[in-house]
Design a protein around this nucleic acid. Structure first.
Lengths: 161, 161
DNA sequence: GTAACTCATTACCTGAGCTAAAGAAAAGCC
DNA sequence: GGCTTTTCTTTAGCTCAGGTAATGAGTTAC
C-alpha cells in the first residue's frame, strides 16, 4: 500500500514560516513520535554486549566519529546531564572501551578516547545489527526501505540539533 | 546538502532475500538506530502533562485507535510485560484518564477504555507537539521534511511489527 | 590575590521497566 | 462433576539509567 499518497502531496505546509503546522503535519509528527518511542524500546533489547546500554553505545559511536572529547562535550552531544556522562564514561573505562587522560590545556577537564577494544566491539555490534536488519528487511518492501533510508539522515540531524 | 545521493540509488540490496545486508544498509541502520535513541530521549522532555510518561501517552494513543482493550492486549501492543502494563493502567486510572471495567465474557480479564478527560488531554498534547513541530520545521527544508513524512508510516509499521 | 565561574564528580533520588511468584478464573481431562 | 493445567492479572522486590543538589579542584576576571 502507498503511504504518502493517502494525503495530498507536499501540501500547504509552512506557508508563512514556522508555527502554523497543519493537520497533515500533526498526523505525521504523531506517527513519528509514537514510532520512535516504541522503536527505542525495541532497540533496547538489541544490545550486542548485554552489559552495554544504548547510551553507552551511542557515546562510542560519537567518539568513533569525533575522535576524542571531554565528558562535558559528550554530555552536550548526547543531551544528557554531566553527572550521567561521568557515570557512563566510568562504565566504559571499567570495560576497557575508553581511555581517560588529563586534558592538555585545562587540568579540570579530561579527554576521553576509545580503545582498540571499542573498535572491535563496534564491529561485533555491526554484526548483531546485521541480524536485526535481516529480520527487518523481510518485513519491508523496497519502497518502504527506500523511504527509511532517505529519512535516516534527517532523523539524525533532528536528533543532533 | 543532499543525503540519499551520497550513496548509489536503490542499490544492490537484498538481492537474494533477507540476510545479506550490504554496507549501505548497515550505514542506514546505524544512523537510524542512533537517531531513534537520541530522539526518544528528546521526546521524553516533550510531555504535555508532566506526570504522564511516554508509554502512558502511547497507551492512550492505542486506546484512541482501538477503542478498548484488556491489559494483556495493551502489553502485547506496547511490547511491555504484563506487570508493567498493570502499573501503567493503574496510573492512568488514578489520573482519571482511563476506566477499568469487568470483562463481559471472562472474569479474569478487564477492559480498559479511555475517558473524556483523556480525549481532551490528547488534544492538549497535540497542541504541545505543535509547538515542537514548529521549532522542528524551522530547521528542516522541504525536502527533508518530505522524507520524514514519507518514512513515518514505515517507522510505525516497524515499531508495530 | 581574591572572587566568581566552570568542569567533573559524589551522593542521593526517581521512574520505568523487568522477573518471579501468587491468586483467580477458565479450559481440558479423566 | 471434580481434578489438573493453563491463562490473565496482580503483588513484591529488583535493576538500571537517568536527574538534581552539593562538593572539589582549577581557571578566569577584576
Amino acid at each position: 500500500m502507498s503511504y504518502a499518497n493517502d494525503m495530498p502531496e507536499t501540501s500547504e505546509r509552512r506557508t508563512g514560516g514556522a508555527g502554523d503546522g497543519n493537520e497533515l503535519d500533526m498526523a505525521a509528527v504523531n506517527a513519528l513520535r509514537t514510532a520512535v518511542m516504541r522503536l527505542s524500546r525495541r532497540l533496547k533489547h538489541q544490545r550486542v554486549d548485554e552489559s552495554l546500554s544504548p547510551t553507552e553505545m551511542s557515546v562510542l559511536g560519537t567518539l568513533a566519529r569525533c575522535g576524542s572529547a571531554t565528558p562535558g562535550e559528550l554530555a552536550r552531544k548526547e543531551h544528557v546531564q554531566p553527572p550521567s556522562m561521568t557515570r557512563i564514561v566510568a562504565m566504559l573505562e571499567a570495560k576497557g572501551l575508553v581511555r581517560l587522560e588529563p586534558h592538555p590545556d585545562d587540568r579540570r577537564q579530561k579527554t576521553v578516547t576509545q580503545t582498540e577494544r571499542a573498535e572491535s566491539m563496534l564491529a561485533a555490534s555491526r554484526e548483531k545489527r546485521n541480524a536485526w536488519l535481516a529480520e527487518l528487511a523481510g518485513r519491508l518492501d523496497d519502497d518502504e526501505w527506500e523511504r527509511l533510508r532517505a529519512a535516516a539522515p534527517v532523523l539524525e540531524k533532528l536528533a543532533h540539533s
